[in-house]
Design a protein around this nucleic acid. Sequence first.
DNA 1: ACCTGAACACCGTTCAAGT
DNA 2: ACCTGAACACCGTTCAAGT
Lengths: 186, 186
Amino acid sequence: VTTRDALVDAATDLLEEGGVAAVTLREVGRRAGVSHNAPYKHFADKEDLLAAVAARELRRQYASRRVRGHPPAIETIAATLRRHIRHALARPELFRLTYGAWRTGSPELAEAAMTGRAAFIDLVVAAQADGDLPAGDPQRVSSLLLALTHGACHLALAGHLSRTGKGGAAPADLVDDLIAHLRRAP
Amino acid sequence: VTTRDALVDAATDLLEEGGVAAVTLREVGRRAGVSHNAPYKHFADKEDLLAAVAARELRRQYASRRVRGHPPAIETIAATLRRHIRHALARPELFRLTYGAWRTGSPELAEAAMTGRAAFIDLVVAAQADGDLPAGDPQRVSSLLLALTHGACHLALAGHLSRTGKGGAAPADLVDDLIAHLRRAP
DNA sequence: ACCTGAACACCGTTCAAGT
DNA sequence: ACCTGAACACCGTTCAAGT
């Protein structure tokens, strides 16, 4: 285990424990067993360390996306989005960091995001060929699905999707609703 | 202009200028012409001040939502979501703060959010009666529309909706797409 | 009721120095 | 090449004191 990995591990743990404010270079160093500014030998600054945390998370999510067998593409899409939601709700801070805005255009982060998106667009193309998704620019249909999934997670995490009374809807319900509507509207 | 308002003004300006990290109680006080800890006489702590910023923004957005005449509800819905997008893209930091997660359950903030959502649900009910939106729990249809709008803004601000090549889609395009699909799928 | 100034503990970052 | 310890400027928060 390299020092760099230990630093990213510590930062990830701190993030999930107490939000981005709890990620302190000093505490990161302490947990990794190095001095409070050893991080500067591996990362330009605090934001660069956080970008590494986000990039690793993106790569892990993509790696876990492998599918057994060959179910219809639309089912793989639904499963992918539901897993995305599960991850977001289980580790909210990591989700917010990973898909938040970056002032620094980290190439590592940009490339990880690109890879995942390209694979998803391929699935949309396949589902369109199956007649399970409406025709149209696949990248645009893909954006529609991802934007809804993303927004549902954000609203849920912000408490704006509360399941109070009858009208509540969990993020996964909204994804199901959208897919059902798209199937009916070619 | 009360001191409290001046503090909220200063905090709002700082937020939009340099993100949440730039909102410093010391600088807020400086800009408001008071000492660096006068804010503590009006707000419990920094997060409470930020909650006041977010709550005021929510109230302003709701206040600007008044409509002349009586166009079909679905058009008012589209216009509302488009204005939401315009605000988010124009003032990204304020958008992220307003709809971000809050560890502190500020009642002022919760109430402002509730008011806006209730008004939107009324519009959805009217559009359903017009046959312009599919039947189903209005709160759930409303969540679908808001989640997509929200997610599209977040993706756009994070640079994940880049208009490169042919496949790019702006948030407003995605909202139009969703509404078109919903109209066709009753 | 509202504000000030000093003080405390903490943090990001830099720098000279060590192996 | 990687790490340490001291140092600097800054910040959130508290407290005693002022009007």
